[in-house]
Amino acid sequence: MKCEKEAVLLMHKVLDQEATATEKLQLNYHLKSCADCRDYFEELREAESFLQSAPEVRAPNGFTSKVMAQLPAEKKTVRFKRWMKMHPLLTAAVLFFILMTGSLYASWTSENELSSLSGNLTFDKERNTVIVPEGEVVRGDLIVKNRNVEIEGEVQGDVVVINGERYMASAGKVNGKIEEVDHIVEWVWYQIKKVSSDTIDLFSSDATSKNKVP
């Protein structure tokens, strides 16, 4: 074939859809007059359509799960976040539970609290013990937290010992109830009882104030 090089380049340019209108005309014009090039171009187009007739091939079944099974472990935070998105109600419940326990635990351990309404108390630092001295009278409830308590005198009210121990001297006297709270569960229960009795108090005081209105 004489005209090969130039014509063939043009053919490929046309097949690549990069030929200008003039170049296309130029090729067409040439093909009309040259049978060899006409055949050649026809064969190239056949090769193209042969390739284009290749059927679609689909990935085999279970392909995605096989890939997923081989991925390196997922970052925990991501899994956690996705879980939260999928279970908003459970997330709220868990969050509530965490905060609840957190605050309860904090109030269980944090401050060393001592409350009583009146009366002189002494505190033995070494033994971490609050002492109601002999002959002393405490009016009201005595609540001791994270300390031991030793009662030699008299308490005219309830004694509550939280996370501590209680010693009663033979001369000691408690008029109200004695309660010892040693475990977190009991502490929770105690808090609930306290809250509910406070609420009841609130209501009853409300009631009395109402009654007082003439």
Binding site: F63, M68, L71, K75, V78
Partner: peptide, 17 residues
């Protein structure tokens, strides 16, 4: 990019063929 496996599953589905 944040490390989400499930999101990558969608990518695999889109491009596997």
């Amino acid at each position: 990019k944040k490390g989400d496996h499930n999101a990558f599953g969608e990518i695999v589905e889109l491009y596997k063929d």
